[in-house]
Design a protein around this nucleic acid. Structure first.
Lengths: 143, 143
DNA sequence: CCGTATCCTCTATGATACTG
DNA sequence: CAGTATCATAGAGGATACGG
């Protein structure tokens, strides 16, 4: 749709943005990171995953697992027993993503307080309802 | 909401999952990573950002910038000139997230072919329409 | 036990038009 | 230039019930 509609100053995001968005969508969705993180230790059964991830619905667990399997991140193995048993485990590709994803999780753990503080500050000082200063001098920008 | 409803085998994700999800939602949304990446080089004006990120709407650019500012990732500075000028730049917190996010982007660049191959393989072999084997021996699981 | 099939809601995103 | 306001929509995600 966009094509090369823009001939602006600097085309920061040429064509890579396509599959970058794909990956970000995948890891950004509500459960993917939780699932692969849960599988980091050992292979698990469907019901184990559901028990280990509080709040996930059957539907979303299934959908997430299918997507990850399709993308080669996890391996699904069904044992035709009675009762049925299915095990999920990370592939090498899945583990490689886990590394990068955990960096993000670590960031979250390390900085969530900073983010919280910033949010509180913005509520108090009423940023957003900022008072437009009448003065217009070059050296006193309005925050 | 979940509380401690589950008393299962191993509580893999206790309470951290809350703010982990918050961070993942933020970086997972359609434009955040593109915006902070674009700001990695230098501070930019609103219109520069819009020109540098093909396909973003005014609304989403504004929404994304507000969210990032609220979370302390970027700093907004308005110069009360005519015409108005507003500059956005990454804060230290924003740059720290950029590092982790770029790790993910690097992963995408490095492995998007593997993912593509896996997807094609799943389409061809018809995984999902897997043939249920009649046999039920312990040592021959169905993939 | 391991899912699939439906229905339903809510949010993210976009298009468009207007303002300081 | 730098937004804000409003309306519309697709799809993610959840609840529930049924099937192999």
């Amino acid at each position: 749709m966009a094509g090369r509609a823009i001939s602006g100053p600097c085309q920061a995001w040429p064509e890579e943005s396509g599959f970058i968005r794909e990956v970000l969508d995948r890891i950004g969705d509500k459960w993917t990171v939780l699932v692969i993180s849960t599988l980091s230790g050992s292979s698990l059964r469907y019901s184990d995953l559901q028990a280990s991830i509080p709040g996930i619905s059957q539907r979303m667990l299934t959908v997430t697992l299918k997507a990850l399997e399709r993308d080669g991140m996890i391996l699904r193995t069904a044992y035709p027993e009675i009762p049925p048993r299915v095990e999920y485990e990370l592939t090498a590709l899945g583990r490689s993503l886990l590394d990068s994803a955990m960096a993000l999780v670590s960031w979250a753990v390390a900085h969530h307080e900073d983010v919280g503080a910033s949010r509180r500050a913005h509520e108090q000082t009423g940023v957003g309802r900022e008072k437009a200063r009448a003065a217009a001098s070059e050296d006193s920008p309005v925050r």
